[in-house]
Design a protein around this nucleic acid. Structure first.
Lengths: 127, 127
DNA sequence: CAATAATATTCATAATGTCGAATATGATTA
DNA sequence: TAATCATATTCGACATTATGAATATTATTG
């Protein structure tokens, strides 16, 4: 009588952590690398990786390697049909501030070739 | 950066148990007493009470006493806007069987005055 | 008020989740 | 191939949750 709800309960458990909800919020608009999340959330890299593993094991996100960076994206966008009503229910502001500016984020996606030299950045050098 | 999601994460945690999802499913169509849930879910009474307390502390359900029975109902029906998409996402059958028949349920709501004598039943005795 | 019915609470233990620190891995560059 | 960068994994202490058993509580009946 309870068993049919096990899968839902498990997935709810996956969502039951503020860091994981914040990560999913970042991935909502498309894939991002881990260093981007690190800059936006101001959390340690290893900590973010741990939560990404939980999300990946639950098959909510997938990853893709590109050189040094791992890019994560939402594999089941339907998850937002669960998350969004919850955010409404708990009365949080629609646009949760990400406290993010390109200047703070060292990831290549945020620093294409704008002349800013950042560790790890791939640059096009004209002689 | 993570804090704004604390409330949502907490409420997800409340939903992250199959027994609590099963209880909410029973309460979906209106209030029910604890003994009714006991009969439907085939779980120990004390166990159900513990989960009801979690739901009550989260203000998802409320209770009302009527004589010997405590009747619980959903205080925030919006919670189903969170639960339903999750059940769709995890691919469970729409109508989850409750394995319930009036014969099995001793609660007064299931045994109005149909002549069946059940412990605890309130009866109208004509002389 | 004693007995009883329905429900709640407390307690103990096992299981699980959190999170920091340290370390490991894989791709890339020099 | 050694150094480096981005990321992942492992380990351990600690906190929280799950769950059964026992007991307490509250309303009702006689």
């Amino acid at each position: 009588m309870i068993m049919p709800y096990q899968a839902s309960a498990d997935l709810f458990k996956t969502l039951a952590h503020p860091a994981r909800l914040a990560i999913l919020s970042i991935l909502r608009d498309g894939e991002q690398c881990v260093c981007h999340m690190e800059a936006m959330l101001k959390l340690r890299q290893a900590y973010i990786s741990q939560h990404l593993k939980v999300l990946k094991d639950a098959e909510i996100v997938s990853d893709r390697r590109d050189g040094w960076n791992m890019y994560y994206h939402v594999a089941r966008p339907e998850i937002f049909e669960v998350i969004d009503p919850m955010i409404v229910l708990t009365g949080q502001p629609e646009g949760i501030p990400h406290a993010h500016s390109r200047a703070e984020c060292p990831c290549p996606k945020c620093h294409p070739e704008d002349g800013l030299i950042v560790p790890g950045q791939v640059m096009l050098v004209s002689e």
